[in-house]
């Protein structure tokens, strides 16, 4: 096995272009998914490139009304950084534990592409763009076009997630709810993110997303658009109808953590509670 620790992004991109590697950032997903008997090496089916310490991927900057987060920024670094969007902070706060957050990267949470990844509902509704780089080119993809199923991504084998771009916007309400098996250090049974901008009692912006209730995070921009322009009161009067419409897109499954009835009911309850809070 050629497990390598490149020193620069350039070197990484060259290696990625030449060989068939798996990128390993914090390893908080990969090291577990491939774990083996103690004191033996994790059983990876590909050679590994360790990118956690690449200096070029550790930054957070604000430029052109857009926040740029380097992909190997750890969750703990983001949690305490003043530029991190408040909604993302809300999500990170209840992700894993301090020890995991010190290793877990934002790029890894995207790269793992789990429907229960807690940063994802937030990134979806903040309209995050993922910047992907290879030796040949840099391209940008909205996050929902990058993640297409559990663990499935439209990313080529010579590419790396370089950064996450988040356009700055103003909201009057933000909400992140995580429903896990316990208060801390739990994988989500359901997660919910919501943002809204209300001006003169009128909905000017409204975005919601749900995690762990489908193969990918569920967000429906059409349904969101339908409520734009409504007054808050109208929205509350028609709440049942809105809930039903969103409900049609929430098709969770049973697994060891919960069941579909619960997931669906609670997802709708969370949406309802968000709308009623506006």
């Amino acid at each position: 096995m050629k497990n390598l620790t490149p020193k620069t992004l350039k070197e990484t991109l060259i290696l990625l272009n030449e060989g068939d590697y798996k990128i390993l950032a914090g390893g908080t997903d990969l090291m577990i998914q491939n774990r083996a008997w103690s004191n033996t090496l994790p059983k990876f089916n590909k050679d590994i490139l360790l990118v956690f310490n690449l200096p070029e991927l550790k930054y957070i900057t604000l430029e052109d009304d857009c926040l740029h987060i380097g992909s190997t920024m750890t969750l703990e670094e983001l949690l305490y950084h003043k530029l991190t969007p408040k909604l993302l902070v809300e999500a990170i706060k209840i992700m894993a534990s301090p020890a995991i957050r010190n290793m877990a990267t934002l790029g890894g949470n995207i790269g793992n592409a789990s429907p229960a990844g807690d940063s994802l509902p937030v990134l979806y509704i903040l309209n995050a763009i993922v910047v992907i780089e290879s030796i040949e080119r840099t391209r940008e993809l909205p996050i929902e076009d990058l993640i297409i199923g559990p663990g499935k991504k439209t990313i080529q084998k010579n590419e790396i997630i370089k950064e996450i771009k988040i356009p700055m916007s103003n909201f009057t309400s933000i909400r992140f709810d995580k429903v896990g098996g316990r208060k801390a250090d739990a994988i989500s049974k359901i997660s919910f993110a919501g943002v809204a901008k209300v001006k003169n009692n009128t909905i000017q912006d409204f975005r919601v997303s749900f995690g762990a209730v489908g193969p990918t995070v569920v967000r429906n921009k059409e349904l969101e658009a339908n409520v734009i322009g409504l007054t808050v009161d109208d929205m509350k009067v028609n709440i049942q109808e809105i809930l039903n419409e969103f409900g049609n897109f929430i098709r969770p499954i049973d697994d060891q953590r919960s069941n579909k009835e619960y997931r669906k009911t609670v997802a709708i309850n969370l949406l309802k509670s968000f709308i009623l809070s506006l």
């Binding site: 098996g181 316990r182 208060k183 801390a184 250090d185 739990a186 994988i187 060891q256």
Partner: peptide, 25 residues
């Protein structure tokens, strides 16, 4: 603390899936 077996196999077979209280609880 939920632990079930399905068709004779323990479903909640690791510490991630078998939930015990943490300090937070």
């Amino acid at each position: 603390e939920v632990m079930r077996n399905e068709n004779g196999r323990i479903v909640h077979k690791n510490v991630t899936d078998y939930i015990i209280p943490t300090t937070g609880d």
